[in-house]
């Protein structure tokens, strides 16, 4: 239960096992410090991420959702991240219609060697979510 004083928000990340999960490991091994809000779910490929997972996460209390896969053209399964890109971009455009600010959902590409990039992605995304504050899904958000 996050301490009110430290104001942690609920962020969940779906990470491809072959690249971004490894990138997060690399960041760890290199001790690249990051905000602590994020909780990571390991998936075999960003193409495994059903947009409904993201929606479910928001509905059940997430303030931010992050998906990270391999850089386009560098997929372990040759095209998985292309499927991910199409589906997730679609979802991102759809979110405002549900009353969710689309900045709460971010998808990106981080390779297994990019520990520093992972640190940057987590830090920046956490900052964005903190800027937006907790998601009050029942009320819907003002989309500017």
């Amino acid at each position: 239960m996050p301490q009110e004083s430290k104001k942690e928000l609920r962020i969940i990340g779906f990470l491809c096992n072959w690249c971004s999960y490894g990138g997060a490991d690399t960041a760890g091994v290199s001790r690249f410090k990051q905000p602590t809000d994020l909780r990571i779910v390991r998936v075999p490929c960003s193409g495994r991420v059903d947009p409904l997972f993201v929606v479910r996460a928001f509905l059940s209390g997430a303030d931010g959702v992050l998906v990270s896969g391999c850089h386009p053209r560098d997929c372990h399964y040759s095209d998985g991240n292309y499927y991910a890109r199409r589906r997730l971009e679609m979802l991102k455009r759809l979110l405002p219609f549900f009353g969710i600010d689309d900045r709460r959902f971010h998808y990106t590409w981080v390779s297994a060697s990019e520990g520093e990039r992972w640190q940057r992605v987590v830090t920046e995304f956490t900052k964005v979510i903190h800027g937006l504050g907790p998601l009050k899904i029942e009320e819907g958000e003002e989309i500017g």
């Binding site: 239960m1 996050p2 301490q3 430290k6 942690e8 997060a24 490991d25 960041a27 760890g28 091994v29 001790r31 690249f32 410090k33 990051q34 905000p35 602590t36 909780r39 990571i40 390991r42 640190q119």
Partner: peptide
């Protein structure tokens, strides 16, 4: 559950790390 690379090595705050580990 990865509580080393994703938690203990990337955060200094023991209280927040512990909470994160409990969740994970």
């Amino acid at each position: 559950a990865n509580i080393r690379e994703h938690i203990s090595w990337v955060g200094d705050d023991k209280e927040l790390n512990t909470q994160k580990a409990i969740d994970v």
